[in-house]
Design a binder for these strands. Sequence first.
DNA 1: GATGAAAACGGCTGTGG
DNA 2: CCACAGCCGTTTTCATC
Lengths: 154, 154
Amino acid sequence: MSVRLDDLDRKILAELQRDATQSLDDIAKEVGSSKTPVWNRVRKMREAGVIGPTTVLLDPDALGLEACFFVLIRTSEHEAEWQQKFLATLRARPEVLEAHRLAGEIDYILKVRVENARAYDVFYQALISEVRIFNVTALLSMEEIKFTTQLPVK
Amino acid sequence: MSVRLDDLDRKILAELQRDATQSLDDIAKEVGSSKTPVWNRVRKMREAGVIGPTTVLLDPDALGLEACFFVLIRTSEHEAEWQQKFLATLRARPEVLEAHRLAGEIDYILKVRVENARAYDVFYQALISEVRIFNVTALLSMEEIKFTTQLPVK
DNA sequence: GATGAAAACGGCTGTGG
DNA sequence: CCACAGCCGTTTTCATC
């Protein structure tokens, strides 16, 4: 069951994505409305799950997480049981920030943030010891050109 | 110039990542401290850039963004001028959520969120018309297995 | 939906240990 | 560096137009 979002909703979402610490008054002013309707819409969109968690974005380098890998995975196993274990492993590992099942020759892609290349190898060894994997290619990021969690709402 | 983070700092960061709407009192209770030290540490970490923007995570499907692509790019051009234009293009495009320059055979990877395959093609055509690119492979996500912005802080 | 009021709450500051 | 306390802005609810 989806939710219809009008233009005002989308403007509010854009503001919340930009800075979720803004007061309702500020948002209302920005989107050309007033406090109450903005508040009601935000509440409804939260209940509907359009708006998920409020969070802070941290600087990975400040945490010592200086290496980012994209991991391309091919597997020969496609049984339900294998997949269950694979997914559970990925979800349990905090260094795996993203995981997608893909269409085409490559079966999965992961985004992994770790301290350094050695820490990636530890992760890699742990992964292939837990689940059978046919082929793995790791792409090392040299530079994060762009990173945003702001989805285009227009 | 980096910042030294002690155990308490990291606990606070974990809580803020989990839910940035929590009150200072709640966080203080959770990390075994009290309001004032938590507040001072948060302020300092903000100033130091360890803590970046506060934002909300939206449901892409609710916004009609049902297609996610990872785009692998090879190029033959490595001059500064070409790169400048390429980066500017990526940064200007809101459907590009992430872009990394890579080590190895593949030069760049993009994460792109769009409405559907047709919208991706529009993006793709626009991209290759703006900058010269040698080879592009698009990986289509069938299922988002995991997505988190929470970096491991321990 | 807009406006305004009122209550509870939390961010933020200052003083003192 | 932490505890306590007070002020002020904001959230949240409610009543009215």
